[in-house]
């Protein structure tokens, strides 16, 4: 399993647009991705639950990635968070 933390710097947080892009990004991998913030977990492939985490600027988000392509997924997702959020 791979895990990383990221603190959101985007002023609006995980709003609809980046949430949609994130789900797409995660969907490209086999691995199961769990996104946790605000004391709640969400399956990274499920847009509605992901948005309902209410992720805002300044919050720390934890991503846990488990599966055959976890190495590649973790790397791609870290890059995604840095450039979009």
């Amino acid at each position: 399993m791979k895990e990383f933390q990221y603190t959101i710097t985007d002023p609006i947080g995980l709003h609809a647009r980046p949430a949609g892009l994130l789900v797409k990004e995660i969907g490209a991998f086999q691995s199961k991705v769990t996104v946790s913030a605000n004391g709640k977990d969400a399956d990274g492939k499920k847009l509605i639950m992901l948005m309902s985490l209410g992720i805002k600027k300044g919050m720390e988000v934890t991503c846990r990635i488990e599966g055959e392509d976890e190495e590649a997924a973790a790397e791609a997702l870290q890059k995604f968070f840095k450039s979009n959020l």
């Binding site: 647009r17 949430a19 949609g20 789900v23 797409k24 499920k46 847009l47 509605i48 639950m49």
Partner: peptide, 19 residues
């Protein structure tokens, strides 16, 4: 693109497993 994204989001919501 920016304003059009809402329809793309709607389509993705319709693929949401929980829903």
């Amino acid at each position: 693109e920016e304003r059009a994204m809402i329809f793309e989001i709607h389509r993705m919501m319709l693929e949401d497993e929980d829903y």
